[in-house]
């Protein structure tokens, strides 16, 4: 599903910062992986590269057997839209769109008709038990609800891979557990590969595999 060979990444600022120092990683289809590490270890950078949000300097990254390297803005947008679903720590919902419209938005960029994408989004919200909230705006919902809406938005394109960056960072422990359980259910039911960045032990315990990053390399 996902293969990374000898990946290097340096941020060239006032003083160059070598963040990733040769990452080798293989994730199989349908796996649920947790990436852990202290802040500054490079785990978020790795996740951004996996999510084609950032590029890298050296090495190779294959997603679904496609080499992802130096893609144009158009190509990377298309790949993200097609293969990857994102869940963020602060939900990143669009404030002036309702829950339903937020969920349907990725399909807008696939030029799917309004009717079809609304129907699909509604179906997904029903499956997640959020149908009653479809007409509400993000600021009318609780953190847990928002994160589940964000999850629905990530799922609507039937991605191969879901990337979650600290998905429970802004939630209390009870809601955190519910969201993680939901992620796990989805992983089990649909076989979607799941990569979660976190530093919460509770989240890590639910994963099949834990990858620890220390100072830009994976700790064996």
């Amino acid at each position: 599903m996902l293969t990374i060979n000898n990946l290097h990444k340096t941020y060239f600022g006032a003083s160059p910062l070598h963040v990733l120092k040769g990452i080798n990683l293989h994730i199989k289809e349908g796996e649920m992986v947790v990436i852990m590490g202290s802040s500054g270890s490079g785990k978020s950078t790795l996740l951004n590269i996996i999510g084609i949000l950032d590029n890298y300097d050296e090495g190779e990254y294959y997603l679904n057997n496609l080499l992802v390297k130096d893609l144009s803005e158009n190509k990377s947008s298309e790949y993200r839209n097609r293969y990857i679903g994102f869940v963020f720590q602060n939900f990143n919902l669009i404030s002036y769109k309702t829950a339903l419209e937020n969920v349907a938005l990725p399909l807008y960029y696939q030029n799917i008709s309004r009717k079809k994408r609304t129907a699909k989004a509604m179906e997904l919200l029903e499956r997640l038990g959020l149908a009653d909230w479809s007409g509400h705006f993000p600021n009318e919902m609780s953190g847990g609800q928002k994160q589940r809406i964000a999850l629905a938005r990530a799922l609507i394109t039937n991605p191969k891979l879901i990337l979650a960056d600290e998905p429970t960072g802004a939630l209390d422990s009870k809601t955190s557990e519910e969201v993680i359980d939901l992620l796990k259910d989805i992983n089990r039911e649909t076989g979607t590969t799941l990569v979660i960045v976190t530093h919460e032990q509770m989240v890590a315990e639910k994963a099949e595999r834990i990858i620890r990053i220390v100072d830009g390399v994976i700790e064996q």
């Binding site: 803005e73 158009n74 839209n81 990143n92 919902l93 938005l105 960029y109």
Partner: peptide, 16 residues
Amino acid sequence: TQEIGIKRAIGAKPRA
């Protein structure tokens, strides 16, 4: 910035 960034993340091309 956030709104546009989110849109780009979920698949909006620059042209959109």
